[in-house]
C-alpha cells in the first residue's frame, strides 16, 4: 500500500522517510503517478538546485524566479507521463526549467538583466575546472571580475558554462537539457571558453591603458 510522504511525516515514521530518501527520482515519479503527495519529495530535492539554476541563467528578480520555479514544477507534474525513462529525471526537469526561463524571461525584454552567481566558492569552480586558462584567470582576477566577465558573455555561452561548471553537468546531461547534440554542446563550451578568454584580454588591455595614463 502506498503511503504518502505527508502521512509519513505526520506519523513521524522516520524509518519510512529514510526509505524514501534512498529511492531514485525515477522511482518517485512512478509513485507520484499513483499518489500526488509523493511529488513533494521531488520538489524538495530540486527546489534549491533549480532556484539557483534559474537565477544564474535568467538574472531575474526573486519574485520572477519563484514564479518560474512554481511554473516549472506544475508543468513537470502535468507532463509526468511524458517523462522519458531513458533520461535522468534531473536532466528532464532542468530542461523544463531551461524552456520556462526562455519563455518567461524573453518576454521581459525591457527589464535590465543582472546575472547573479551566488556563492563565490561555486563560481571559482569555473576556474578550477577550466584547466590552464582558469588557473591563469584565478591568479589575475577576483571572483567579482569573473562574474562581470560572465555577465558579458552571450546567453547561449553563459548557459553552457553555468551547466558545465556551476551545475556540474556532463556533456550528455547538457545535451539532454538544452536538446542539442553532444557535438554542438562541446563546440558551445569551447566557444564559450574562447569568448571568456577574449573578454579577459580586453580587460587586460583596458587596465594597461589605464596604467599608462
Amino acid at each position: 500500500m502506498c503511503v504518502s510522504p505527508v502521512h509519513w511525516m505526520e506519523n513521524k515514521n522516520i524509518e519510512k522517510i529514510e526509505d524514501i530518501s534512498t529511492l531514485s527520482d525515477e522511482e518517485i515519479v512512478s509513485m507520484t503517478l499513483k499518489d500526488e503527495n509523493f511529488y513533494a519529495v521531488l520538489i524538495e530535492r530540486y527546489e534549491e538546485k533549480l532556484t539557483r539554476y534559474i537565477l544564474r541563467i535568467s538574472g531575474g528578480s526573486k519574485e520572477d524566479v519563484e514564479d518560474t520555479l512554481q511554473d516549472v514544477f506544475i508543468s513537470a507534474y502535468k507532463n509526468l507521463n511524458d517523462f522519458d525513462q531513458d533520461l535522468k529525471f534531473s536532466s528532464w526537469i532542468y530542461r523544463i526549467a531551461h524552456n520556462k526561463v526562455i519563455s518567461h524571461f524573453r518576454k521581459i525584454t525591457a527589464r535590465p538583466k543582472t546575472v547573479t552567481y551566488e556563492g563565490d566558492g561555486q563560481l571559482l569552480n569555473i576556474l578550477a575546472s577550466s584547466e590552464d586558462l582558469a588557473k591563469e584567470l584565478e591568479r589575475k582576477y577576483t571572483g567579482e571580475e569573473v562574474r562581470a566577465i560572465l555577465k558579458g558573455l552571450d546567453e547561449k555561452y553563459r548557459e553552457v558554462l553555468v551547466l558545465k561548471f556551476l551545475e556540474d553537468k556532463d556533456y550528455k546531461e547538457i545535451s539532454d537539457i538544452l536538446e542539442k547534440p553532444m557535438g554542438t554542446v562541446a563546440t558551445l563550451i569551447n566557444r564559450a571558453k574562447k569568448q571568456f578568454k577574449e573578454e579577459t584580454l580586453k580587460r587586460e588591455l583596458t587596465q594597461v591603458k589605464l596604467m599608462k595614463n
Binding site: 500526488e36 513533494a40 520538489i43 520555479l69 512554481q70 502535468k78 507532463n79 511524458d82
Partner: peptide
Amino acid sequence: MTKLSEDILGKIKHDHIVPAARWRFL
C-alpha cells in the same frame, strides 16, 4: 515539507491538476 512543495501540492489539489494521459504523448 517546504513552503514551495506545500504551495504546489495545494495548487495541484485545489485546481484538480492531473498528469496528462500517457496516450496523448504517445
